[in-house]
C-alpha cells in the first residue's frame, strides 16, 4: 500500500527541555485506520501536531508523499496548498478550531483559503451540513453551540476540503454518549470511504470499536508497542505497564470486586 506519511526518528522537546517524543518511526499508508495510544502526557497530541506540520521536530524528518514536510518546504505555496488540502486536523478542543462567526462560514473557511471557488465551496458546505445532519445549525453562531454540536461542526469544517488524511486528537473528549457514538460511526464511515484516519486516544473501547492498527506510546515518549487492536487489547500486562488499565475496585450488591479496569467494553469481572 502507498505510504502517505512517513515519520523518521522523530524527537521533540518543548522549550528544548521537556521531552515529548523520542525516536518515533511511523509509516502511515493510504486508507489506513491508525490509533496512537498512550497515557496523558505521553506525546500523542504533539505527534499529531508534527504530522500536520504545525510544529516541527527537533530531530528526524516527516515526509508527505515522499516530500519532506518542513518549515522551508511549507513556505512553497504549491506544496503548502497541496499539504493543507490533503491533511485535516480535528483538534481536541473544538473551541479553538471554530473561529468564524457562523457555522456556514466555518465550513467555507478552509476551501476559500485554499483557493476553491466560492460557488464550489458553498456547494461543499451545504452538502457537508446535510451529510453530518447539522443543516439546522447553518446560520447559528458557533459560540452558542453545545459540545457535541461543536465537534460535528469542527469535523464538517475540515471535511469540506476533501482531505486524504484526517488527524483526530482525542475524538471522544468531552462528548456525551450519543455524540460519542456519532463520532465513532463517522470515523468508521470516513475510513470505509477511503480516507486515512489517524486518531489519538486512551479509551480502549474506542480501539475495540474501530479495530485500527495501534501504536502505543510509553511514559518515556517512545513507541513501546505496535500491533492490531486485538493484539494490544488482549495483552493486559502490557496495558498495565503503560498505564492504560489499572486495578479497580467496585461493588456488586454486597460483594466487592477487584479487577483490571478501563472504560473498555470487555469488562472482565473476576476476583483477584
Amino acid at each position: 500500500m502507498e505510504k502517505i506519511l512517513e515519520l523518521k526518528n522523530i524527537g521533540y522537546a518543548y522549550f528544548g527541555k521537556n521531552e515529548a517524543l523520542r525516536n518515533i518511526d511511523i509509516d502511515i499508508h493510504k486508507g489506513e485506520l491508525l490509533c496512537i495510544m498512550g497515557q496523558n502526557g505521553s506525546g500523542k497530541s504533539t505527534l499529531l501536531n508534527i504530522m500536520n506540520g504545525l510544529i516541527f521536530p527537533d530531530s528526524g524528518n516527516v515526509f508527505f508523499h515522499g516530500k519532506e514536510v518542513s518549515e522551508k518546504s511549507l513556505r512553497e505555496s504549491a506544496f503548502n496548498a497541496s499539504f493543507r488540502q490533503n491533511t485535516a486536523f480535528i483538534f481536541q478542543n473544538s473551541d479553538v478550531q471554530l473561529f468564524c462567526s457562523t457555522v456556514f462560514e466555518e465550513l467555507m473557511f478552509a476551501p476559500l483559503q485554499l483557493g476553491i471557488m466560492q460557488e464550489e465551496a458553498e456547494h461543499r458546505a451545504i452538502e457537508m451540513l446535510r451529510s453530518i445532519g447539522i443543516e439546522h445549525l447553518k446560520n447559528r453562531s458557533v459560540i452558542s453551540l453545545s459540545g457535541g454540536e461543536k465537534k460535528k461542526v469542527a469535523i464538517a469544517s475540515v471535511l469540506t476540503i476533501n482531505p486524504e488524511i484526517i488527524l483526530v486528537d482525542e475524538p471522544l473528549a468531552g462528548l456525551d454518549p450519543k455524540s460519542q457514538t456519532f463520532v465513532i460511526e463517522l470515523l468508521l464511515a470516513l475510513n470505509r470511504a477511503g480516507k486515512t484516519v489517524v486518531f489519538t486516544t486512551h479509551h480502549l473501547d474506542l480501539v475495540d470499536h474501530l479495530q485500527p492498527r495501534v501504536i502505543v506510546l510509553s511514559e518515556d515518549h517512545t513507541i513501546s508497542k505496535t500491533g492490531t487492536a486485538e493484539e494490544i487489547l488482549n495483552d493486559e500486562d502490557f496495558l498495565v505497564s503503560v498505564n492504560l488499565i489499572h486495578e479497580h475496585t467496585h461493588k456488586h450488591g454486597d460483594e466487592v470486586h477487584k479487577h483490571y479496569h478501563s472504560h473498555y467494553v470487555f469488562h472482565k469481572h473476576g476476583k483477584h
Binding site: 504545525l54 496548498a81 483538534f91 483559503q113 458553498e122
Partner: peptide, 23 residues
C-alpha cells in the same frame, strides 16, 4: 494558549497570512 491553538487551527485549514472571506 487559546490564541496559539486557534492560530494553529487556522494554519491547518490553509491560512497563509491572507484571509479570504465569503462574499
Amino acid at each position: 494558549s487559546h490564541y496559539e491553538q486557534t492560530y494553529a487551527a487556522m494554519i491547518s485549514r490553509g491560512y497563509t497570512g491572507k484571509i479570504t472571506l465569503r462574499r
